[in-house]
């Protein structure tokens, strides 16, 4: 925090946007006429996000979300976009990066190791929209039930569709992964009563 560059005046404020445009071929997002928003390509996304965090002090990842443009009246292009909302605590500036994702590919590189909260935010974005995050260590549903079929926030998911879901997530896999992260090897797996192992 304390050694983050000061970006309070207008000229410095442009430095991050210039870098985005020259180094990462970012283009301003015409959809956003209120704040600083840029579109980058998928291959430079990770580098651009890391550069924004380390060089321009956008140290907080506020949110990750996907947008499904399937029935958007004013859109012509790829079906999905993944949006990264960043904030700098030192300067107070915000910036958003958006990357187009096609319906066929429906995947984008994960940044779970760049910000700690990206792990869960990516899980939610995948759960709701079905755009995968490549390299995510535990891409499980976050809001919907583990046996839920489909991705409810896609525009072609019927709002009144119902599914019967009953079995709990045992979560032993997550617990074991955390134990292994602390240097423990599981010798004998106990199964908690009442849940599917």
């Amino acid at each position: 925090m304390s050694d983050a560059p000061e970006t309070t005046d207008v000229e410095d404020k442009r430095a991050d946007q210039d870098a985005l445009e020259s180094r990462f071929q970012a283009t301003p997002d015409i959809h956003d006429s209120w704040d600083a928003s840029f579109i980058v390509t998928a291959d430079v996304l990770r580098d651009a996000l890391i550069a924004l965090r380390d060089e321009f002090a956008y140290n907080v990842l506020i949110d990750i979300t996907t947008i499904d443009y399937l029935s958007h009246a004013q859109h012509d292009g790829e079906r999905f976009a993944v949006s990264y909302n960043l904030k700098s605590l030192s300067s107070g500036d915000r910036i958003r990066l958006k990357v187009w994702v096609s319906e066929e590919e429906a995947e984008i590189v994960s940044v779970h190791d760049v910000w700690k909260n990206a792990n869960w935010l990516e899980r939610e974005a995948w759960d709701q929209y079905g755009v995968s995050f490549i390299g995510h260590p535990n891409q499980k549903r976050l809001l919907n039930h583990i046996d839920f079929k489909g991705h409810p926030l896609r525009k072609d998911f019927p709002v009144r569709k119902r599914q019967e879901l009953s079995v709990n997530d045992a979560m032993l896999d997550e617990l074991e992964a955390r134990l292994q992260g602390k240097g423990y090897a599981v010798l004998e797996q106990g199964s908690p009563a009442g849940v599917k192992a």
């Binding site: 134990l179 240097g183 423990y184 090897a185 599981v186 010798l187 004998e188 797996q189 106990g190």
Partner: peptide, 10 residues
Amino acid sequence: MKVQHSNGDT
């Protein structure tokens, strides 16, 4: 659940 730490402790 039985676990063993890398230092040998179970």
